[in-house]
Design a protein around this nucleic acid. Structure first.
Ligand SMILES: [Mn+2]
Ligand SMILES: [Mn+2]
Ligand SMILES: [Mn+2]
Ligand SMILES: [Mn+2]
Lengths: 158, 158
DNA sequence: ACACGAGTGTAGCCAAGGCTACATTTCACG
DNA sequence: CGTGAAATGTAGCCTTGGCTACACTCGTGT
């Protein structure tokens, strides 16, 4: 037994109404979707950045990738290994990183979605700096359905 | 110019223009902020849910928490241990979980922000189901500045 | 030519957040 | 009361994504 002293602080759950529906309803699926989206986030950011770097400078070096993402180079190396494992990138030692077709498609979608999210935020009155910053996290949780609604909204309001 | 051999697949980064500014500019801070927000996400979801459970049923049991979040009970137990470590919750074995003042403040802010995010999405034309689902991830990346803009937007369009 | 510094690779550590399997405690009910 | 099923705790495993420290390569500049 635990010890039910003249209670110093900590309350004890009342085991009150145990057989009731608890809350409106458990929605574990929503949290599961959010966790899945988060697992994709890293891949999306890397592919988008690698594509940007190649477009801007002709190459994507580990050091540059790391610098842009604010991580150390071994972290970037490990992430690139995961990109390769998932068939999104190719690379050879000391030779830079390249995207596969699949990786380029992911990059293209990520970039478009990123831009749409920023545009929507700005249209709603969010300061540009905050919009750019928040979008970096928000984008990964915007479903196709939501993205479509965003596009319609931007279109509608010119 | 890139590697101009009879290319057997893998290209080689050209070490072309090394002394250039690479991209518009590295913005590692944005990704760092997104990572920090993500680290807070779990705490926010747990405090919000615990507060909901207590409000609805008078108690927050590990099993119910786990069920609502779609994880197994040892996972929830571990998370509650972290909540305790961070001063957000209190608990005793077999006795349910309670929020500290700090935890309740986090829960209140999380709930309000969650609602605002859903409302904005719906106002933009996102189907309610998608809005609820996406909001579960998006909410954690909405800064105070963005939240304020959201509130103004909802207010304005009454 | 070649040396040296910048870039990259690799080893190994850590914490978070999942999981399964098993031990223990409660409490509702016969 | 006593007891067994449900709830909870605990141990230990895994992967991801950070990090530091150190080893190795490359190519630039003298
Ligand atoms: Mn991002
Ligand atoms: Mn992005
Ligand atoms: Mn959430
Ligand atoms: Mn929420």
């Amino acid at each position: 037994m635990i010890g039910q002293d003249p209670a110093p602080e900590l309350p004890v759950a009342a085991h009150a109404d145990r057989g009731r529906p608890a809350l409106p309803a458990p929605r574990p699926d929503r949290h599961e979707r959010a966790r899945h989206a988060q697992a994709q986030a890293l891949l999306e950011d890397y592919t988008e950045l690698i594509d940007d770097l190649i477009a801007a400078t002709g190459e994507a070096r580990i050091t540059d990738i790391a610098a842009h993402l604010g991580v150390t180079h071994p972290t970037a190396t490990k992430a690139v290994a995961r990109l390769r494992r998932e068939g999104l990138a190719q690379s050879r030692p000391y030779r830079g990183v390249f995207l596969t077709d699949s990786g380029q498609r992911m990059a293209a979608r990520a970039r478009a979605r990123h831009r749409t999210v920023v545009d929507v935020l700005v249209a709603l009155g969010v300061p540009v700096e905050a919009a750019e910053s928040d979008a970096e996290g928000i984008e990964h949780h915007v479903s196709d359905s939501t993205l479509a609604a965003f596009a319609r909204f931007l279109d509608r309001r010119g």
